Amino acid sequence: MNKKIFTLSFMTVLLSSACSTMTPARYSISVDNNLELKKYGGSKIQLSALNATGSFDANCRLMGPIQASDGMTIPEFVRKAFNDEFKFAEVYGDSGVKLSGNLTKVAFSSSAALTNGWWEFALELESSNGKSMTVETHYDFKSGFDAITACNQTAQALGPAVQDLIKKAVTQPEFAALVK
């Protein structure tokens, strides 16, 4: 009888600890990015396509995958974030400069130095005017010790990490050449 109770208890614990998907909040506009993009007033910009050629391991510890909000992939999340920033700065438009991009690196850690984490991105942008640029970012954050906290913190850090990526892209001098 003890063996049956142990087995039943073990199976209950095992099934209740199955992996779950960690999802961040929706992207929110950055004031700094908005101020920078306002400099391009009169321009019409759109990130029309964004692919990912680098491999991306979405699994966070043994908790499960990190997935962008609203069921989007990471490239879809980043593309929507760029376009949301363009819209808020009133520089978004269907007619005008079309940007396309390629995420060559998407990576994260939820256990750097045990309780810290980071997101890294490498992005290539190409304009319909023939100009191109690349940008790489490394965004650090506090994750936590236990897997549940660390993976949730990693998911929640996606938005600020993408804000950082956009800021680095739009503040580079090469960005101005893309949108002319």
Rank of each mutant, 00 (worst) to 15 (best):
I5Q: 01
I5E: 12
F6Q: 12
S9H: 01
T12M: 10
S16N: 03
S20W: 10
S20K: 12
M22F: 13
P24Y: 01
P24G: 01
A25S: 12
A25T: 13
I29D: 04
S30G: 10
G42C: 10
S43V: 10
L47H: 05
A52C: 09
G54K: 00
S55A: 15
L62F: 07
L62C: 08
G64S: 09
G64C: 15
G64A: 12
P65W: 06
Q67F: 01
S69K: 13
D70G: 04
M72D: 01
M72V: 04
T73G: 10
K80E: 00
D84M: 14
F88E: 09
D94N: 08
D94F: 03
V97R: 03
V97W: 01
K98A: 05
T104Q: 10
T104C: 08
K105M: 13
K105Q: 10
F108K: 13
S111H: 11
T115I: 14
F121S: 10
L123R: 13
L125Y: 07
L125R: 05
E126H: 01
K131N: 11
S132E: 13
V135T: 11
F141G: 05
F145R: 06
D146S: 04
A147V: 14
I148E: 13
T149C: 03
T149V: 13
N152Q: 11
A155F: 08
Q156G: 01
P160T: 14
Q163C: 04
V170P: 04
E174Y: 02
A176Y: 02
A176N: 06
A176I: 03
A177F: 06
